[in-house]
Amino acid sequence: MKKEENYIINVEDMTVAYHVKPVLWDVDFHVPEGVLMAVVGPNGAGKSTLIKAMLGLLKPVSGTALFWGKPYQTQRKRIGYVPQRGSVDWDFPTTVLDVVCMGRYGAAGWIKRIGKAEKKMALEALDKVGMLEFKNRQISQLSGGQQQRVFLARALVQDAEIYFMDEPFQGVDARTEKAVIDILKALRDTGKTVVVVHHDLQTVPEYFDWVTLLNTQLIASGPTAEVFTEENLKKTYRTSGEAIKE
């Protein structure tokens, strides 16, 4: 019997479908506080969908995602989200600092503006990701890795307790990957929980202490040492869904 009290994220029986094609099917897993978790699975396994459904950006067919026992809508301010880099137009006329400040918009709410204190937070976050010198740059003049750092800084200023990151290592240089993972580990060490959609199997044991293996259905979820086994990986990356006959 699991002790659910120790988990701060509880996803139960989450099913998301495109018409009748299931993208996620009856997925449930639980995440304890203070772990760095990877969501791993092949393309089209529903990794991004899972995150979006948890954050209420998609409407699930069934199931719930609860944070500290409550739905996302009531816990928004304690949760940060880093969307995929490709989801925005980087030619938008705005500066690095301005993008990072957007992280405080949610706390400010409708209409209210952000002030000096927020700007200071944004500068600190930029410093943390090593982008302070670029604060007045237009965002189109950034490399892929720098864009990712800006997005990370934006999430950092949200000052959340749980962070969701969608493919943060997609198309970034090795230096950025290292810098980002160091920051994520530091976050975890201060007791925050980080959920990362991840592609690269090789780095999983090195980076993450908790893993959720996904291929439409949940294959396994738990501490990396227990879950990240060859057998589970085989199940995850098997193309035909025989998992049901186990």
Partner: peptide, 8 residues
């Protein structure tokens, strides 16, 4: 700039 983030 980023509608998805706005929603989140």
């Amino acid at each position: 700039f980023n509608p998805e983030y706005a929603d989140s």
